[in-house]
Amino acid sequence: MKKYHPKNERIKRRYFDYLKEAKRMDVSSVDLVAASIAAFEQYSNYQDFAKFHIEKAKSFKAHLAKQRNATTGNPLSKATIHSRLMALKAFFFWLAGQPGYRSKFSYADADFFNPSANDSRIATARRDKKVPTVEQVRHVIFTMPDGSDVEKRDRAIVAFTLLTGARDNAVASFRLKHVDLAARSVFQDARDVRTKSRKTFTTFFFPVGEDVEAVLAEWIDHLKSKLWFGPDDPLFPRTEVALTNADLFGAVGLSRDHWKNASAIRRIFRTAFEAAGLPYANPHSLRNTLAMLGEQHCRTPEEFKAWSQNLGHEQVLTTFTSYGTVATNRQAEILTLIVNREHSQQGGPLSATALDALHTVLKELSAKR
């Protein structure tokens, strides 16, 4: 059975190189694009891309709508279908301008990969995220055991993530030298730390409690005074696995190496939240927790800009639009506060200002639905 087309492989290699070098896409993002193109190739029986026709795009959309998730057995989500079709649209749009393909199909032909307007709205709609509160994360931290070196490390990881909002892949790559306890800061140096888009910036500890800071300080002191770690050693070393006394492989302590990825950190979070009797919250969700905390505490645009920069966002709108969405229950609380405030100030019906504010929030709620 045909598994590839040599000509397709050559042009795909050029496209992936274009995405990485010209569009500056991360390797993981390019891999997702490659998977989408591979799915289309398999559907078209590895036909030469130069023979692309709009009918093939239309039939592929119908094919995706019938596919099921290999793990759950459920139909593919609208978001998954949308992302695959958008990847294919971008690829064939680029392909239409390449030698050997320009005369075969037009730029406009790529538009036939567009999903329906209704499916696009469903796929891109913003929905309430399950975000833990600061109090819940603190509860998790202070119910975690800290008897062994591994347990101390795991508790410090959750505390550090709440203090800094650092992404899990960055947390896995920090070194001791990047933390300055006196300045209450961590230097996210892209030369050593796997930050998103390889940005370099300084994060100061968020105000989530001195006792949370103490957990991190105790861990760093343990690394330096008990395990003799130096500045270039990992802040959160990976677990050393070897044969135990029971002749089984298991954790026997800590190594002096970094984790290669963040999968272990996500497992630590899952175990910690479940042990505390709370739904699993992944490390990234704590960034949403901190964004909402900033909305409650910041009183001026300058303060929120500083808060946003502390999360590593160059544009404050990123914090507002991607992390600062007001949850529906909080939305109801705000509306109630507006009503009560207006009643107390006016002593009567809502003013035009309050009505405008109410209508604005209701429109936003309607749009989310």
Rank of each mutant, 00 (worst) to 15 (best):
Glu274Trp: 01
Arg341Asp: 15
Val150Glu: 09
Glu364Val: 10
Val27Asn: 13
Thr71Ile: 13
Gly347Phe: 02
Ala87Gln: 07
Lys152Thr: 08
Val27Cys: 10
Val241Phe: 11
Gln136Phe: 01
His5Pro: 05
His53Trp: 06
Ala70Phe: 10
Arg194Lys: 15
Asp247Ile: 05
Asn282Lys: 10
Leu181Glu: 05
Ser77Lys: 13
Leu358Arg: 12
Gly294Gln: 03
Val339Asp: 12
Asn118Phe: 11
Val131Phe: 01
Thr353Pro: 04
Thr133Ile: 02
Thr271Val: 13
Asn69Tyr: 04
Arg102Gln: 14
Ser308His: 05
Ser366Tyr: 09
Arg153Asp: 03
Asn169Met: 13
Arg167Asn: 00
Lys368Glu: 11
Lys226Ile: 01
Asn245Cys: 04
Leu365Met: 14
Phe201Arg: 11
Val30Asp: 00
Lys3Gln: 14
Arg121Asn: 11
Arg287His: 08
Ala281Asn: 12
Ser263Tyr: 14
Phe40Asp: 07
Val186Arg: 03
Leu243Asp: 07
Asn340Asp: 14
Phe229Arg: 03
Ala117Cys: 03
Met292Thr: 07
Glu55Trp: 10
Leu293Glu: 11
Ile157Met: 09
Glu240Arg: 15
Tyr107Lys: 15
Arg267Ala: 03
Ser106Thr: 14
Asp247Asn: 14
Tyr4Arg: 14
Gly253Trp: 02
Glu364Tyr: 10
His53Val: 11
